[in-house]
Design a protein around this nucleic acid. Sequence first.
DNA 1: CAGTGGTCTAGACCACAGA
DNA 2: CTGTGGTCTAGACCACTGC
Lengths: 244, 244
Amino acid sequence: MAQRESSLAISALVKQLIEEIQQGNIADEHHQLPTEPALMTRYNVTRYTLRQALGQLGKMGYIYQAHGIGTFVRPRVEQGAVSIQNVAGLTAELERQGKKVTTQKATITPVIADQAAFQPSGSTLAPDTPMWEIKRQRCLDGVPYQFEHSYYLRDIVGDIPDSVLYGSLFEFIANNESLKLGFQDKVMDARAVTPEIGAFFKLPVGAPMLTMRDDSYLSSGQLFAFSQLNYEYHQGKFFMFTKL
Amino acid sequence: MAQRESSLAISALVKQLIEEIQQGNIADEHHQLPTEPALMTRYNVTRYTLRQALGQLGKMGYIYQAHGIGTFVRPRVEQGAVSIQNVAGLTAELERQGKKVTTQKATITPVIADQAAFQPSGSTLAPDTPMWEIKRQRCLDGVPYQFEHSYYLRDIVGDIPDSVLYGSLFEFIANNESLKLGFQDKVMDARAVTPEIGAFFKLPVGAPMLTMRDDSYLSSGQLFAFSQLNYEYHQGKFFMFTKL
DNA sequence: CAGTGGTCTAGACCACAGA
DNA sequence: CTGTGGTCTAGACCACTGC
């Protein structure tokens, strides 16, 4: 029973570091973190693992590293913006900011690919592929926020309980043992509000909205869902962080 | 004079791999790349270096890796979309797609921070910080595309020759030996077209546009520029790729 | 089971910043 | 010159896929 508990080293380390940063008990008065060698002994990991973790924190906008100088905590980023690089679902990220996402109305209908309102950008589907068509109207702290229009491949995801429609579809898929999530393509653009969406957002037709089209793949490279997420333009803000 | 030429291993390897993928002489008929051990010997690098490079290709959307299966070339992503995770400038990326960005009109004016139309999101500037205010109207293949409104800190970037205004500001900064680029925050949202911007886009006031606010930092963590890039909503599409 | 990518260790050398 | 982060090597073991 030594001090061994280092399973899942990197994700656990990421979680630990975020916690300590938020509690403010790791950076000094200049927002500077201990050096890499110090952190290696502190968490009993090698430099590779540590730097993988620091890299993740960087991607999330928590820290930056300056060559020859040190590692620093970044001032907190724009409130209300969601990280577009996020790994957890949208709901989870907003809840960490103390905001609440609720689903006001949801419908689910079986269709075939031929009947879909749009197609995935990267792949081509057989016209008779069975799918679930899902439409959801979602609010952020009670205010209209997101109009979702998604298609999930029935043969892959199986049945979707009604209860899930009012919670997190992302979590439902992630918790399915037989499905391993892989990656996602996203294309963002601005569009004009349509009558159907305007009715929910309480905006006139032609008003701006932010649209995110995404295609989701299993780790095997198999497409399992594609969707169009429309955001009310006062509420929908996406944050990201890039190394130059 | 052995077969040694492995300076800049990872960035050179990335470049090499992209080239071979585009020429189609590396993947097999199932779009599958050789295995990691095979690539290691082929390019004479270790697994660490190889995987760093493959990770970059993944971020750029060129490939994906499936655990236990292999590495695959991805079908080409949405045409006209620009990778939001890109490292090179916007102009460079669009030119790789065979598109041409031209600057139709540009102005540069010395101002102080107090006079700026907007402020950086993350940092606070002294009100008397000297800056360059730059406005540019840029076209994509001759069609109105981007309305740029930027501020550069004069004390950091120095003088900006007029010629640069009609080329790539990003390259100008990157080529300055005394400046080392660090990272960038971006916040994207949709907005309504203003009169000034509508005049350029030939769109009515209130029409949608895609706006990207960004703050740019040196590798030392020092802010050196912040800008607001507005995109005509039929043209401006941003692509990104996320691991789940 | 063999073969794939994913994680992790241990250590070396390089490049940059600042005293 | 010392200390920082950036790159790279060599090799081990684990987890997943498909036969």
